[in-house]
Design a protein around this nucleic acid. Structure first.
Length: 480
RNA sequence: CGCGGGGUAGGGUAACGGUAACCCGUCAGGCUCAUAACCUGAAAAUUGCCGGUUCGAUUCCGGCCCCCGCAACCA
């Protein structure tokens, strides 16, 4: 029996700063889904990587007087380290948009798109602030359309020839796709948002930059004066990582005949569920199966995290102090799967003590203490015991609902110990007490099984302890 | 009338047409297997405001008031 294929990818983070908690959240969630699918018998292709082109990186490297490639290489190391820091799947794929294979794929994508008539050249007016000596985008201008730093200066409009993508040609096709694919975007309210956006009408967007101004990008085929705009290049990574266009076997298995899933933050809704889908159509490739949009991690009170406010949290620090599984737990259960969620160290500590130290950690100690003192060997473990609701919740990307099921099982076991008092019963009715303890061991094993996608290390440890009928060498999660 | 999300016990969140659930905190019991952990119970919410639909609304509809994102060539 050949395994069913499953492909899931994160957004490729832009490597102009260190990995932040928002991306850690996204990739942990994707990893949980990837592990759950593996547990369910799928052959999983799990992808992440780094987005390394574009003006911001070019400028930052330039400002620090560093070769751009050296600059990105330095950052990529930090992102690759996430694999061990966050306990990600061993076989995760990592694509860099500077990889030769990706660059070739992006160029081929462009060629096909162009051949199909969806790329054209037109004059594009850029806004230039002579004070900053920089081009400005609308988001970098104030309400009157003036530079924040130099509001008294008039912006200069400079004509520049750019290549454009005929996004507007895909309005109806996108709406048809949305209609025929009712689970394309999860959750529903994000799907509604993108539908409304497309219904309002689409504007073609620029997909190239003049090389003289910004050389750090994939060259535009057949025009040495331009490089691709970073988005056009980065989005194609979702298929270049699968070997497109050369490795048709891998691509066909996981994308064409599979159910490709893209995980991203809400700031990526438009790019992934509209622009990228249109781009795929333009080269006659099938659409993404599901795009999962999660919210932002915010500071206390729902305010944006920012270094100036001092309310940022570093995933590395958390892992150092509390361990990988504690962070994974928090992401899965304490943060909303689709809405914005506040993240503070106080909340984290509170949840850690309540649910990891007092919850699963303490439960493990009390069950295994009774087991090791009263059982001669591990009880028989049923071959399957994961409740279907658990897998169903993960199937709709609701890690919170899934984790809640696990913690209901933990509470139930604590209650059973209190109500049946096997530690007391053992003195009067040994056989009955042994049966209760065996049942508790099986319950703990089942909890271990369910924790596999969410907290892989804890999962393995729980299963090992029950199977070998051993006390943990030290408490699983020490109170902080 | 640009688009979307939210306003639920002291704090943080869940549920979403039919006794409003959970965590932290507070109070009172219990237990001793366990990481001063665990269990039971109590106090505490007219579910932002005003109308409507309904036998019944936190949940559906309309209006209003606040908060937060986004508003495309920023990634």
């Amino acid at each position: 029996m050949s395994q069913k294929p499953f492909y899931i990818t994160t957004t490729l983070p832009y490597v102009n700063s260190d990995p932040h908690i928002g991306f850690a959240m996204e990739i942990i969630r994707a990893d949980v889904i990837a592990r759950a699918k593996k547990l369910d018998g799928y052959e999983v292709f799990f992808n992440t990587g780094t987005d390394e082109h574009g003006v911001k990186i070019y400028q930052k490297a330039f400002n620090s007087n560093e070769d751009t490639q050296v600059f990105v290489d330095r950052y990529v190391v930090k992102f690759k380290e996430l694999k061990s820091v966050l306990g990600l799947s061993d076989d995760i794929h990592f694509i860099r948009t500077t990889d030769k294979q990706h660059v070739a794929a992006a160029e081929e994508f462009w060629r096909r798109c162009d051949k199909n008539g969806f790329i054209y050249k037109k004059l594009y007016k850029t806004k230039y602030c002579s004070g900053c000596e920089l081009e400005k985008t609308d988001t970098e201008l104030n309400e009157e359309g003036r530079c924040f730093i130099h509001p008294t200066l008039d912006l200069l409009l400079i004509d520049e020839e750019n290549y454009f993508f005929k996004f507007s040609a895909f309005q109806q096709k996108l709406l048809d796709l949305y209609r025929s694919n009712p689970t394309l975007v999860v959750p529903d309210f994000r799907f509604n948002e993108i539908k409304a956006f497309v219904e309002r009408g689409l504007e073609d967007f620029s997909i190239s930059r003049l090389k003289t101004k910004m050389p750090w990008g994939v060259p535009v085929p057949s025009d040495a004066d331009h490089v691709m705009y970073v988005w056009f290049d980065a989005l194609t990574s979702y298929i270049s990582t699968l070997g497109w266009p050369d490795d048709t076997k891998t691509f066909d298995t996981f994308w064409k005949n599979g159910t490709p899933v893209q995980y991203c933050g809400k700031d990526n809704l438009r790019q992934q569920s509209a622009m990228w889908q249109a781009m795929l159509m333009s080269v006659d490739l099938p659409p993404t199966h599901t795009i999962v949009i999660d919210g932002f991690v915010t500071g206390d009170g729902g305010v944006k995290m920012s270094k100036s406010l001092g309310n940022t949290v570093d995933p590395l620090d958390i892992v150092k102090e509390y361990g990988v599984d504690a962070l994974r737990y928090y992401v899965c259960r304490e943060l909303s799967p689709f809405e914005d969620s506040p993240f503070t160290m106080d909340k984290f500590k509170e949840a850690y003590n309540a649910h990891l130290a007092n919850g699963i950690g303490n439960l493990t100690s009390r069950i295994m203490k009774m087991a090791t003192t009263n059982l001669t060997s591990a009880p028989e473990i049923p071959s399957k015991s994961i409740p279907t609701e658990f897998m169903d919740a993960l199937g709709v990307f609701n890690t919170q609902a899934a984790a809640n099921i696990v913690w209901e099982h933990i509470s139930a076991a604590d209650r059973i110990i209190q109500e049946k008092e096997p530690f007391k019963l053992i003195k009067t009715d040994t056989d009955a007490a042994i049966e209760i303890i065996k049942d508790l061991c099986v319950r703990l094993y089942t909890i271990g099984r369910m924790l596999n996608p969410i907290m892989p290390q804890t999962s393995e440890l729980l299963k090992k302890l029950v199977k070998e009928n051993k006390m943990p060498e030290q408490p699983l999660f020490l109170r902080k």
